[in-house]
């Protein structure tokens, strides 16, 4: 198929940036979206132009590095996939595709489609862990049974890949699905209880400091999340936060 691409080009953080139009031809429907981008970049390199910078790594939907906003949707029109798993069979010959970076105040553009997501890092550093040292002397893994349901639910929350699609999709640029997923994972497990109150308070505080917006329950994040992280995690985070406000040490 032949396609017209409208791509956000921005030389650096301080550049204003603009949409630039490109044409690609003979695109196979079996290609992944990023392979289509490879074809474009090879074309640009061969004609002496600078290729489009975009983040990507594992190309199997698990590392969370890829981050394009395609035709107005984070990770494009397919559901339950990251951009790297989006295939060209979702598009038709002659289509015009608009490709932008994930946009949010807390995700400044570094170059073209590459954004800075270190705000996510700082939220995790604020409390996304259980304080246990690597001593090799922890109790036996089976000493504490955990109900299968709780373990499965914790796993579902832990499946978040930290891509930021939730933020890019939210009209408020809220990161509550991302934070809620981590808070939930630990809140559902007995190991997470000891620090539960501090964790949720610290992570939410950091989230607010980074400039992410609030949740107004539109649910766009859940729809666009490549891993199907449920809105329930936001509810659980809010519950944890209320619980934490009642705890006095």
């Amino acid at each position: 198929m032949n396609l017209t691409l409208k791509i956000w080009r921005q030389k650096g953080p301080r550049d204003k940036g603009k949409m630039v139009e490109y044409k690609v031809s003979d695109i196979s429907e079996h290609m992944s979206f990023l392979e289509m981008m490879d074809v474009l970049n090879e074309q640009l390199v061969n004609s002496g132009e600078e290729p489009v910078a975009f983040d990507h790594d594992c190309r199997e939907g698990i590392c969370g590095m890829c981050s394009m906003y395609i035709n107005g949707e984070a990770h494009g029109p397919d559901r339950g996939v990251a951009t790297c798993q989006l295939h060209m069979r979702m598009f038709n010959d002659g289509d015009t595709i608009t490709i932008e970076p994930f946009r949010a105040k807390a995700f400044p553009v570094i170059k073209d489609l590459v954004v800075d997501r270190t705000s996510f890092e700082r939220i995790q550093q604020a409390g996304g862990y259980i304080s246990v040292n690597t001593s090799g002397n922890t109790q036996d893994a089976n000493a504490l049974p955990i109900s299968k349901h709780a373990a499965d639910e914790a796993m579902d929350a832990a499946a978040c890949i930290g891509c930021g699609a939730c933020v890019a999709s939210c009209k408020n640029s809220s990161a509550m699905l991302f934070v809620g997923a981590k808070v939930s994972q630990y809140a559902l497990l007995p190991q997470g209880q000891v620090e539960a109150a501090d964790r949720v308070k610290n992570m939410v505080t950091q989230m607010d400091l980074e400039g992410f917006g609030n949740c107004t329950n539109t649910g766009a994040c859940e729809v666009e999340c490549p891993k199907g992280i449920s809105l329930e995690n936001i509810a659980r985070m809010n519950r944890e936060l209320v619980k934490a406000s009642l705890v006095k040490f």
Binding site: G136, A151, A154, M155, Q185, Y186
Partner: peptide, 11 residues
């Protein structure tokens, strides 16, 4: 170690 860290292994 991983269980203590909250890794949600299958049960």
């Amino acid at each position: 170690q991983c269980v203590a860290q909250g890794v949600p292994f299958a049960r």
